[in-house]
Design a protein around this nucleic acid. Structure first.
Lengths: 128, 128
DNA sequence: GCTACAATTGACTTTTACGTAAATAAAATA
DNA sequence: TATTTTATTTACGTAAAAGTCAATTGTAGC
């Protein structure tokens, strides 16, 4: 695995702009190291970027994504905090279950829409 | 099934504001009928509202949700349009598959986070 | 017909998530 | 060394999706 990635390498890999990446840094989601002023992204930063974009695709806000990231790097802590963390994990899980149900329902509706389409095309006497 | 719902009934059922519902009407996503100036929401409007909120939870924009709605009520049309529609359906499906994968991955990470938590709690010598 | 209250409309504000542009510096290349 | 190229910082701009507020307008009950 490579030691460092440049910002442009990451923009190309993930199809986002430098502005976006710097914005995520401003938001404290990633903390690339510096050589002079230039940012150097470690594998861990790249991993976080992946996580952020996954979160975005799922419709999570920056604030929510920040919370998720905090969750992952939380342990070592005290027992009460751990319990709280586990509670948060469970809340996220419920959200994701909900989203998964939403997806299944939407997929079903898409199936129906497509069927209606195909039926209509058959009516119109279209071969294939 | 009831004939009509009032706007406040729907805000309560779905936990959204009247402003939001009117906003969706302005955006042309729902078209409640009127008695005087007062909006009366039919079951179909309520169904659309459900669909809209599901779309929102999945991170779709209003524009995308509008497209999805258009898709559902598209047929009767001409064959070329039908093909285009089917193509769109397939694109949506791919998006949803991607989201589903994203969810599975995130769920896995949550499992890991929870395990780490539990392990840490065991270390701390916490019973149950 | 008056009062109280719910609903509507329109204008303005806010928040989020970046885009865009200008100025500057550092690095790579000719 | 001159010239691109690449990156950074700072600052302002913007589109989407509502929230908020004020001024009206209906309307249900008495």
């Amino acid at each position: 695995m490579r030691d460092f990635y440049t910002i442009t390498e990451l923009t190309k890999e993930f199809g986002i702009s430098t502005r976006t990446i710097r914005f995520y840094e401003d938001e404290g989601l990633i903390k690339p190291v510096r050589r002079g002023r230039t940012r150097l992204f470690r594998p861990v930063d790249r991993g976080l970027l992946k996580l952020i974009l996954r979160g975005k695709r799922l419709g999570f806000s920056i604030a929510e994504i920040r919370e998720i990231i905090e969750m992952y790097k939380a342990p070592p802590g005290e027992a009460g905090q751990m319990r709280l963390l586990i509670q948060k994990v469970n809340e996220r899980r419920e959200e994701l279950y909900q989203k998964r149900r939403d997806i299944e329902e939407t997929l079903n509706e898409l199936d129906n829409a497509e069927e209606a389409c195909l039926a209509r095309m058959a009516e119109l006497g279209v071969g294939k």
